[in-house]
Design a binder for these strands. Structure first.
Lengths: 254, 254
DNA sequence: TCCCCGAGTTTGTCAGGACAAAGTATTGAC
DNA sequence: GTCAATACTTTGTCCTGACAAACTCGGGGA
């Protein structure tokens, strides 16, 4: 096999682990390996040393080494095959990162984002929103309408509903902070969300607000986010100018 | 704590594991636990038995039990806290499942899908496609144009490019099998993909093919998929009728 | 009554050993 | 020379044992 030539055994220098440190040994090993991989010192496609030898040289047990490797395998940096060995995968294929967090970071990437709170009121939840949030219809929610700008242009019209017993909100808060930032600051961590992305033509009023022609294509996104306890934190129904915005996602299988 | 009342200890019947089976013990235990949780026999929020007792009653070692529990923790069904125990999380919060695989399963869900191959030819890759696939411009690729129906109506117009040295394709193959099915059958497993979802208005010819009015909103999706080795397998540029289709995604954070 | 401290519980980390299973490379027979 | 059986390498599974760290809860002291 010619591939053997291009798959050199990569070594990890021995003296590495610090047994006085409070950070677990397996994590120290994993971090060390990750560094070597990211610096390119182990090279894409290279086989790393086998578990047994690596454990011996680092002075830790095989289960500890194994756990370190497993950690990196789960993060998508390594691939193991029984009877073969453990290889470094291509950087392009890494990042099992769940998904681009939300939407803010996308606009924040290059263009100066700005958010204008058009309205904010507490009202009883209508049926559709109550259903999405899995709360009783009529439960008081804070209903927010915001207009997001990027690069001086309107980008998105966002509607959100947050149950008041989840978090009371004021317009001042939202003027300076993102909704998710406010949630997190109050100990409310969204864990999963379901999104539906679609498209439709702009209504006359939407077109006016977003500075588009009537009938222009809009991207729509409806989302509900839950925390660890399964409590719905937020419902959102947003429309984006398709001419200025798109969703980018990285998915990983297996 | 009143929560103790609502958090009963849930038991797992002892005789369960089959040591003659080729399926690993930890997996047998994990499967058993998962069944109990999904059937609701352990109830949301309930604490499961502690590792040590569970291991003893099942007749396996603690590491094995631990691994089984860990497996379910990683899948988002359980949450552990040191000094506290292991709890069943709310079903809504489960499913760190990466993402709905692709598109096929969505239409396959309820409506009878059908695919018509409009054209298939081998041609040198134009610059944009070559760039997306990270191959040299002019490298021969199979260029496919397909029309997907669901429930008797046209749903999407799909364009794909697959490098011929990745997989040679024929129209017959594609008439009866999905593109990803063909890839997988040939040992080509897409591992990650980047997608960009946007929207725009239909051109006249698109509107005609898709049975829409001119200027109707279309969902657009551009995707490149790579295998474990970082080799680009497929480039796709698809348009969907926004009136009949939307993307649903479940994302999970941290 | 309130607070702090310690005992008990439960998960987290780590070691060392043993065998099984899958893949690769070598050897041997034809 | 080709092919199949064998030996070897490497990861996968499983065990026993031990101690540490985080959390809960009850008792004792101020």
């Amino acid at each position: 096999m010619s591939s053997d030539v291009s798959v050199p055994q990569a070594g990890v220098r021995p003296v590495d682990v610090d047994r006085t440190s409070p950070v677990p040994l397996y994590f120290q090993v994993a971090t060390r390996l990750q560094e070597l991989i990211e610096k390119g010192e182990i090279g894409v496609g290279a086989r790393i040393e086998n578990e047994v030898d690596l454990a011996e040289r680092l002075g830790v047990s095989r289960p500890t080494t194994r756990r370190a490797i497993q950690y990196l395998v789960e993060r998508g940096m390594l691939v193991r095959k029984r009877g073969v060995g453990t290889q470094v995968v291509h950087p392009k294929v890494r990042r099992p990162v769940e998904l681009s967090s939300l939407y803010d970071d996308l606009v924040a990437g290059d263009r100066a984002p700005r958010t204008e709170v058009l309205s904010l009121e507490v009202m009883p939840a209508p049926d559709t929103i109550a259903a999405a949030l899995e709360i009783a219809p009529g439960t008081p929610v804070t209903w927010i309408e915001r207009l997001r700008y990027a690069g001086g242009e309107p980008l998105a019209l966002m509607h959100n509903a947050i149950p008041v017993d989840v978090l009371p909100l004021t317009a001042d808060d939202l003027a300076t902070h993102g909704l998710y930032e406010l949630l997190r600051r109050n100990g409310l961590t969204p864990r999963i969300a379901t999104q539906i992305i679609g498209a439709r033509s702009a209504t006359t009023s939407e077109a006016k607000i977003l500075d588009e022609k009537r009938g222009a294509s809009l991207l729509t996104m409806v989302r509900t986010a839950w925390d660890v306890g399964g409590r719905a934190l937020e419902y959102g129904s947003h429309v984006y100018r398709a001419s200025r915005y798109s969703f980018e996602l990285n998915l990983s299988a297996g």
